[in-house]
């Protein structure tokens, strides 16, 4: 009876929501902010990937916030798991087979290279700091799974996280000092569609790539080391 009632209530709710959503014209080209970005994005920011110009330049402040959200999540996990960290007892670990270990070691540099390519070319091709960082973190995940005796240098990861976050804020503050606007794109925009173009966008995306990579790797590291 309770289940039946729940289903009926859910159906009523679903109909109500569908009524309301059905009237919203998603995907039509009337969105005025979007139209502006498509028309003026390349000219104003120098990035040929419009998504990147929006993410890093027009709405760069959101991106700073999002990087912080990820940072806070990784930090919070670290703070909670810090009390439950396992003592260093590596002898219980069973070594992985040779095929697995060499396969992981072989793939690792290529995945790293692919990740770096994604965030360095963020202003030219699809992808960017978040995606590149996630790909890099998955390379480290592979190492964690395949070669279990390898460990990342925690202080190094911490330093990369802090420095890249700081770099983002400092680039923004320089913009405030130079032109009066936080995160102003004050570097020369260059010729669109070349690697050295779009001013501060590639620099910020590289910082994000490092930061996201280090944070996600940190999350996996914390989880793997936590007590059972």
């Amino acid at each position: 009876m309770r289940k039946f009632l729940a289903i009926v209530l859910l159906l009523i709710l679903a109909v109500g929501i569908a009524q309301s959503i059905g009237k919203i014209p998603f995907g039509t080209s009337k969105t005025k902010v979007g139209r502006y970005y498509i028309d003026n994005g390349v000219e104003e920011t120098g990035a040929t990937n419009i998504v990147t110009s929006v993410v890093v330049n027009y709405r760069g402040f959101d991106t700073l916030g999002e990087v912080t959200v990820l940072f806070v999540a990784a930090l919070g996990l670290g703070a909670v798991l810090a009390l439950k960290k396992k003592k260093q007892e590596n002898d219980e670990l069973e070594r992985a087979s040779l095929v697995l270990t060499s396969g992981c070691k072989f793939l690792f540099p290529f995945i790293l290279l692919f990740g770096s390519y994604i965030f360095i070319h963020g202003h030219l091709t699809p992808g960017g700091g978040f995606q590149g960082g996630a790909v890099i973190a998955s390379a480290f995940l592979l190492i964690y799974l395949g070669c279990r005796e390898r460990k990342i240098n925690e202080n190094g990861a911490k330093a990369i996280e802090s420095l890249s976050g700081l770099l983002f804020v400092v680039i923004g503050l320089i913009g405030l000092a130079v032109g009066g606007y936080f995160l102003l794109n004050y570097l020369p925009k260059g010729i669109p569609n070349t690697l050295f173009s779009a001013g501060i966008i590639p620099i910020i995306y590289i910082a994000i790539g490092f930061k996201v990579g280090a944070e996600l790797t940190g999350i996996i590291d914390n989880l793997m080391e936590a007590e059972d």
């Binding site: 709405r59 402040f61 916030g65 930090l75 919070g76 703070a79 909670v80 810090a82 439950k84």
Partner: peptide
């Protein structure tokens, strides 16, 4: 409005972690 959401998330996620901080 979206920026508000982003900062709101920073606020919320750090409070979740700090509530669990004593372990």
């Amino acid at each position: 409005i979206f920026n508000l959401f982003v900062f709101y998330e920073i606020l919320c996620i750090s409070s979740y972690a700090l509530v669990a901080y004593p372990g």
